[in-house]
Design a binder for these strands. Structure first.
Length: 470
RNA sequence: CGGGAAGUAGCGCAGCUUGGUUAGCGCGCCUGGUUUGGGACCAGGAGGCCGCGGGUUCGAAUCCCGCCUUCCCGACCA
């Protein structure tokens, strides 16, 4: 069996385990400037799959991609009081350019509500122009005091959606649609991460928003990670940027806007939601290669069989990588593929092959099975679907096992040491939030008793989900 | 940004207290060979402005000052 672990075990030091995985799976490196990140090809391939899955859903929700500038006039930020207050500590500001001091400093975008607001104001004239549904894929900069690869870097990649609507109801409904049909659907079906959906308490709200929706996932150490957020911005930005339209009745009306985003943090969430002591465990839908064909040894018959299997997988539309055995011993190569989290290994060796068989191994459970050469493509294609579903179920079981209903703040603090606590929001209150803060815990989100997303934090009988978080 | 720890080969570390030949070890890497069903073995080899800058000294990886970076704990966040 396996020798000494390649990685620091999760139970010994979870943050160290995370760093080990990021390094050993060749996902990312620290950049030369504090907080910056170099995303390596394997990590970027995962991001690209995340990107395309989200992009597809965004387009299905009716939004169109566009691109706005990296540099934003400092004065734009100042127009929305809460927004500038929230972001000013983490802004990178350019004061010099072209060898001269700039008359007005420009900030490197921390998010684009302001520039996009400026252009929405220009483009929207009539109620017929609404809703205006935009999205952009971009990098943003928020100067981080305590960076961690993928989870919190000073520069990160993301998608930010920005929309303008005629009514508050329409804006609110659209934010909810994005939350369910883009984010939660993606998280469940692609990342295989179950979430708690809800709204943020006022203390955790986005700077300038009237309501913030969140998807909270549980990591393998029981901490919460906010995997995506959607914001109802009310008329705050419309007022600041004069985003108005003429109604059917000929009146000038302020728009209601929304914004919503998901970032490279998702890669960190993916690592921590499914990873184990042997490394990354990828759901097939985000794996750069759902399958690796491993030649046990370099041998003519073995390589010929690998080629055949490759052909069959190709025909079945399954992406795969071929490990022809030229690089090191079998055990070494297997360990490497495990660290990288490849969902299925097809091991092709002379012993099995003599009987027309190959060994198929699942990364998530470690389960091995022996199948015939003729059947392997069909079996693997089906197995990938099963793994995708099983990984979601396993993550849900893990989360449910560590989520407890409690009736007092003190019990919540105990439960949130290793998972999530569900406590009536009325019991928490402002003093409760302060008490939680002292324990390094927060209210991650507020939900209705049935798990649905409330309209606002004033609804009666809301449940607060309390946890430690990233 | 506050408190703590640390920076020596790609990675993990020793050497520093008590300054003094050519700065070591393990893993990885390269070459050749034997191997290959869960991190193989033998032989040979390459690779260092000892984080950066300044100072003390005949002499600094080692002592002093400043800065940068990383990790942990807080405050802030996707």
């Amino acid at each position: 069996m396996a020798g000494p672990s390649v990685l620091t075990p999760q139970s010994e030091d979870f943050p160290k385990w995370y760093q080990d995985v990021v390094a050993k799976a060749e996902m990312a490196d620290n950049g030369p400037v504090r907080g910056t990140m170099v995303i390596r090809p394997y990590g970027y391939a995962i991001w690209e799959r995340i990107q395309s899955a989200i992009d597809e859903r965004i387009k299905r929700a009716g939004a169109q991609n566009a691109y706005f500038p990296l540099f934003i006039p400092e004065s734009y930020l100042s127009r929305e009081a809460e927004h500038v207050e929230g972001f000013s500590p983490e802004l990178a500001v350019v004061t010099h350019a072209g060898g001269e001091l700039l008359a007005e400093p420009v900030v490197v975008r921390p998010t684009s509500e302001t520039v996009i607001g400026e252009f929405m104001a220009k483009w929207i004239q009539s109620y017929r122009d609404l809703p205006l549904l935009l999205n952009q894929w971009a990098n943003v900069v928020r100067w981080e005091l305590r960076p961690r690869l993928f989870l919190r870097s000073s520069e990160f990649l993301w998608q930010e959606g920005h929309t303008a609507h005629a009514t508050a109801e329409d804006a609110s409904a659209y934010a909810l649609t994005i939350h369910h049909q883009v984010y939660n659907d993606f998280l469940e079906r692609v990342l295989a991460v179950p979430t708690f959906l809800g709204i943020k308490p006022p203390s955790e709200r986005f700077a300038g928003a009237t309501n913030t929706l969140t998807c909270e996932g549980m990591m393998r150490d029981g901490k919460a990670l906010q995997m995506a957020t959607s914001h109802e911005l009310g008329q705050n930005f419309a007022r600041a940027f004069d985003i108005v339209y003429q109604s059917e009745e000929g009146q000038s009306e302020l728009c209601f806007t929304t914004s919503w985003g998901a970032s490279t943090r998702l890669v960190g969430g993916l690592i921590m939601a499914h990873g184990d002591d042997n490394g990354l465990v990828l759901p097939p839908a985000v794996a750069p290669w759902p399958v690796v064909i491993v030649a046990v040894r370099e041998d003519t018959a073995v390589l010929a069989a690998c080629g055949e299997i490759g052909q069959a997988l190709e025909t079945a539309g399954v992406r795969f990588q071929l490990d022809d055995g030229r690089r090191g011993s079998f055990g070494r190569r297997v360990t490497d593929w495990e660290v990288k989290g490849v969902p299925v290994r097809v091991e092709v060796g002379p012993r099995d092959l003599a009987q027309g068989l190959v060994t198929v191994v699942r990364r998530d459970t470690g389960e091995k099975s022996v199948v015939s050469l003729e059947e392997v493509a069909r079996v693997v294609a089906q197995l990938l679907g099963e793994i995708q579903g099983d990984m979601y179920e396993a993550a849900r079981a893990f989360r449910d096992d560590r989520t407890h209903d409690v009736s007092t703040l003190e019990d919540a603090i105990v439960a949130a040491q290793r998972g999530f606590a569900r406590l009536t929001w009325d019991v928490v209150g402002e003093s409760g939030e302060a008490r939680l803060k002292a324990e390094a815990m927060t209210v991650r989100c507020l939900q209705r008793a049935d798990g649905s997303i409330p309209q606002h934090e004033g609804e009666p009988h809301l449940i607060a989900i309390i946890a430690k978080s990233y």
